[in-house]
Nucleic acid binder design. Structure first.
Lengths: 333, 333
DNA sequence: TTGTAAGCGTTATCAT
DNA sequence: ATGATAACGCTTACAA
């Protein structure tokens, strides 16, 4: 592959001049500029981003750490980030992490070795201290979907306690008193927070939520199916199901229908996330809108701006609250 | 950030020695090795991937060009690639392209500037010649979901003509004679090929497919809805719908049900791709399985192996054929 | 086993 | 307006 040197030789000018042409620098004669440009295209010259990054210490790249591309939630996340990197002419370096300490750590470190300018990290497994330390090292470090008070100004996150409260309140308002919850079995904050919110709402209404009415499984459609099976097997009596996410809600609906339990006339179901699935399931799923895409875009902008020297304000954080999207899966009793 | 020089100074050894312990090179005394390692972790040293790539001319990274992360098809694609890069300890550089010449070109060029070792490219808009030229320049260049005879050994693709034939034959075998097709409005090979296959099957059965029975729209759920609306508005009489993909099939089912047309008792629907959507729609969608994930993994392996010097065999290509997945959306008449 | 030094492709600082 | 030249952080012969 042709280097800047080859171009310089071919054009009979110095390296410096070619470099100036490449970077649209000033102080270059029009004639030379044209001649050099011509030779560059002729020889198929492509500047070496690595060499450039080495000397300028800037890489025009943003690192992304997420758990699993297949999950529509993360796909949406990635899409939100991509929309801003495209605008800024920045390259995405992607590292998948899978919600385990070791892999999340590895993902972040690889990105750091590549000297990405900014990074948007979705980490659930790593401890606060580790993340705080990374933030100290990398100016453009931003967390999405997680809140750590010490670095709140680098956190773009959703208030899951409020989310849990909102979904429960909606069910209560529709007259549902016999509720079941199907949640994620993973030991991360999100399911805990959402259930906390649910309990808050129920408590205010003087309603109890026994542990037996909560089922845990993998946060996907299959998990939703299993939870319903277990609930049914245990003979739990419920008219409303609060799901951890839309995938579980969808699985739950499938299983309920398989048992000839109609939705929403016999059982109401509410989801969380509002991914595409929700809109196109049958019946259409009432759910909480998690503005991932907007949040991801925000996180990317933030990371880029911090990376380029903007100082994070103290005492600020980027908290979002989910809103309810009423569709067809919840019936007013 | 600490450099190799800093480590060398702190450890009282030369650059070369530090480099050797970084790369687990031989010929380093155990004592020195331990000492240097200790100092590296203590100082939080991280080798600079750019500098390394510059001198070794290898970057341990694989570039991916795709159109749209939001689309579950591409998410699956990305996931398949990710599974092999993870295994090979290779980083993913992602560039979104959006099926336009200019953006696809830009995406590939950026990746090339970053000197990725290998690349898996999903390009629909660029001309054959351009792609062939890229393949000539970059040893690890592999195309997915596209076939170009001249570089067939760098193509991992699906036989869409066969796919069209298979879906039509299935409908015919189930006794459907009045068929409608809803297809993608984009001017790329895939929809054309699939319709070609469909026509082949119908022709063999002596059945005609008038242009009026084909509707084109965007290849998503909304597009599927619109196509059905148009078909219904035109008063086309059909008992079977062949959809361009599962998303359109899903939209079609939604719209049919909205018109109180039951599936499959009144109209049968068949999709294409077999994304998650198909399994969880109601009724469950009969569709063609497009083994994207497997193909993407294959493409990534191929790209990596070509990149590391393996010579592509002549007269070989990586063609896959979709298989039918029978679920509930097609009724035997 | 360890060190010296050249060079990878650029940019940037001085000169000219 | 153009050219030398010293970095940037690292690997890798070649010496010692």
């Amino acid at each position: 592959m042709a280097t800047i040197k080859d171009i310089a030789n071919a054009a009979g000018v110095s390296l410096a001049t070619v470099s100036r042409v490449i970077n649209n620098g000033p102080k270059v004669g029009d004639a030379t500029r044209e001649r050099v440009k011509a030779i560059m295209t002729e020889m198929g010259y492509r500047p070496n981003a690595n060499a450039r990054a080495l000397v300028t210490k800037r890489s025009a790249s943003l690192g992304v750490v997420l758990a699993e591309l297949l999950d529509p939630f993360f796909a949406t996340l990635a899409h939100g980030i991509e929309s801003v990197t495209r605008k800024h002419n920045v390259q995405i370096l992607m590292s998948a992490g899978s919600i385990e300490k070791a892999t999340e750590l590895k993902a972040i470190e690889t990105l750091l070795e590549h000297r990405v300018e900014a990074m948007v990290v979705h980490s659930k497994a790593l401890d606060d201290e580790v993340l705080i330390e990374f933030a100290r090292q990398a100016p453009g470090f931003v967390l999405i979907n997680r809140f750590i008070p010490e670095i709140g100004n680098r956190c773009v996150w959703l208030d899951n306690v409020a989310g849990g409260r909102i979904m429960a309140e909606h069910m209560l308002k529709q007259g549902h008193k016999k509720l079941a919850v199907i949640s994620s079995r993973y030991q991360i904050d999100d399911p805990v927070d959402r259930i906390t919110g649910i309990r808050q709402a129920l408590q205010s209404a003087g309603i109890d939520l026994p542990e037996s009415h909560i089922e845990y499984s993998t946060p996907d459609q299959e998990g939703g199916e299993k939870c319903i099976q277990n609930l049914l097997a245990k003979g739990v009596d419920f008219t409303g199901v609060l799901a951890y996410n839309d995938a579980m809600a969808s699985g739950a609906m499938t299983m309920l229908l398989d048992h000839h339990i109609d939705i929403p006339s016999q059982v109401s179901v509410i989801g969380y996330d509002d991914v595409l699935l929700a809109k196109y399931s049958r019946p259409k799923l009432t759910t909480l809108r998690y503005p991932v895409e907007m949040m991801a875009a925000k996180a990317a902008e933030l990371a880029l701006s911090y990376a380029s020297g903007k100082k994070p304000e103290a005492d600020i954080t980027f908290k979002y609250t989910p809103t309810i999207v009423k569709r067809e899966s919840v019936l007013r009793l």
